[in-house]
Design a protein around this nucleic acid. Structure first.
Lengths: 140, 140
DNA sequence: TAGCGATTTAGAATTAGTCTAAATCCAGAT
DNA sequence: ATCTGGATTTAGACTAATTCTAAATCGCTA
């Protein structure tokens, strides 16, 4: 149950994914929006009609643990998944909920300071900007 | 539905809350942890035995919109509520899930830069640190 | 005090996600 | 080629969180 497969995202076995995990992964990477598990299920079904919901969740857990995707969760109901695994930040539109990636390198530099303030041993930092996306600000 | 009550957290009508909303608000403010809706329901019930779950959720929505509390949502299942309404940041323990408040003023200064990168009209920024809390790092 | 909008209530409904147990798959041993 | 055990997949039941609904109640203001 603890598993010993650490060689997933590494140089060697990048092709060891099962067809289901592969399909789930492809769905996430192929779209620049950040699909929910439900959306991933629908899309994966296109390629692999027999795939089940449970398998999507199993695959997502697996891919997350393998560091191939990232789970993002904000005020809305469902988690979203992001295929960009480099450190980056997110902007969420308060009007339409759109989620946009961006990278503000300064964020990473705040990690030590944040660790000091919080007394945590730091592992990652993430900045969230809330506001109005380009589309929504037009109509304000 | 859009409502025009902007005078809630302001100087004037800080006492306009209904008993239920008051109770929910007090629960959140009186504890320094970040209770879930379920925990708030249990605690509010102590003061107001007839309060219902739906009212807790209604009150939470109301208080959020009034700017009196903040909803926080991370990888776990349930949303948590925070009575500190000044801008601040959060650290979450990857081991035990503990949630700690801190303020890194530099974060606020990144808002314009983040807005530029994301093309958003900015409204708020928030930094999330993940790592190990003081308790958990002892056992690593 | 009658009427009206806002609020509260209980419980049903919905949604996201997890669990379970049986079926299937696959790699290595025979 | 066949057997076997572990990992994976599947359908569907289950759980937990949250929202919805419709009736009851509250608190004004006319």
């Amino acid at each position: 149950m603890k598993s010993s497969k650490k060689n997933i995202g590494a140089e060697s076995g990048a092709k060891k994914l099962t067809p289901q995990r592969e399909a789930v992964f492809k769905v996430i990477v192929d779209r620049e929006d950040h699909p929910t598990a439900g959306e991933i299920f629908e899309a994966a079904r296109q390629r692999l009609p027999s795939i089940s919901y449970a398998t999507v969740y199993n695959s997502l857990r697996y891919l997350k643990e393998a560091g191939l995707v990232q789970e993002i969760r904000f005020g809305d109901s469902a988690s979203r998944y992001d295929g960009i695994t480099d450190r980056h930040d997110h902007a969420i539109c308060n009007e339409c909920g759109k989620l946009v990636d961006f990278d503000l390198p300064q964020t990473a530099q705040l990690m030590q300071a944040a660790a000091r303030k919080s007394q945590f041993k730091p592992e990652s930092v993430h900045l969230t900007l809330r506001g109005l996306c380009a589309d929504c600000r037009e109509y304000q």
